[in-house]
Design a protein around this nucleic acid. Structure first.
Lengths: 138, 138
DNA sequence: GCTTGACCTGACACTTACTGACAGGTTTTA
DNA sequence: TAAAACCTGTCAGTAAGTGTCAGGTCAAGC
């Protein structure tokens, strides 16, 4: 039994994150009958810890919501967890390749530009440095 | 002199993107006096081409807006372009390292989990697979 | 018993770069 | 002349927060 601020502090999570999770329904506090303040339980701290761990493993909040939902319905969320991480492993591999490609492209551009003068913009060109990269790719 | 649809088609950009760029002020069409339709010039096509190229090099729309602004004020945007790409090269390097770390973590987790049974959630645990990863890290 | 400061509340705007849908007005083509 | 194609502005949604606002509540000190 605690307020949002206490839960945030004890779980080492910013207060606005606790509020955000509450707003999107990941956390479902009850209400203090007297003042209407949100009241969190010990199980919310467990849940918040789980959310932190899952996020650190690359799970999105939407996926975490599905996992929590599965658990709430009395099913083991583990098969879903295995399925999601397999997908993330593939996606992340793709993403890394994409960023590496961009990295090479940026480094090559900067290098090529070292021999080029700055130019003034006109109706046909904004910055010939960037336009030259597009030209090469054609 | 053309409408949004024509500009989009000629520049091979989705119509909603042209509208989006217009809404955020990257493109500034005049108005047809008769029907109030937006009217784009040849220079907008040049600009749109530039935006496409800059985006492909990793520039954000906000950065592109600054570059365009510099050009509009009659200054060469090239120094700014060089400065931004140097920053992106560093940032992207960092991002790649971060994703590689995540990749190793995910692969190790999936591997470790192959020897673990699925579990049922309770008040102290949601999914022991994910919680075990957090435990190891402590 | 009252004030002050810390804490709580909901609501909203902003971030990135679109993506999609909506209702209604205009233009072109058959 | 009517239907098809295209135009308009506006709004909501995406992911995951981050930040601000005005105002309500609580505990401590005087």
């Amino acid at each position: 039994m605690m307020t949002a601020g206490i839960l945030a502090k004890e779980s080492d999570v910013p207060l606005y994150t606790v509020r955000h999770y509450t707003r999107i329904g990941l956390l479902r506090p009850s209400r203090h009958p007297r003042n209407g303040y949100k009241v969190y339980q010990h199980s919310d701290a467990t849940k918040l810890r789980f959310i932190k761990s899952a996020k650190a493993l690359g799970f999105t909040l939407t996926e975490i919501a599905h996992i929590l939902d599965e658990a709430k319905h009395g099913n083991s969320p583990c098969p879903l967890v295995r399925e999601i991480i397999v997908y993330h492993i593939e996606e992340n591999k793709r993403k890394i390749q994409e960023l590496k490609l961009l990295q090479r492209k940026m480094e090559k551009s900067l290098n090529d530009w070292s021999n080029m003068e700055d130019s003034m913009p006109n109706g046909e060109s904004v910055c010939h440095l960037i336009e030259s990269v597009a030209e090469i790719e054609k």
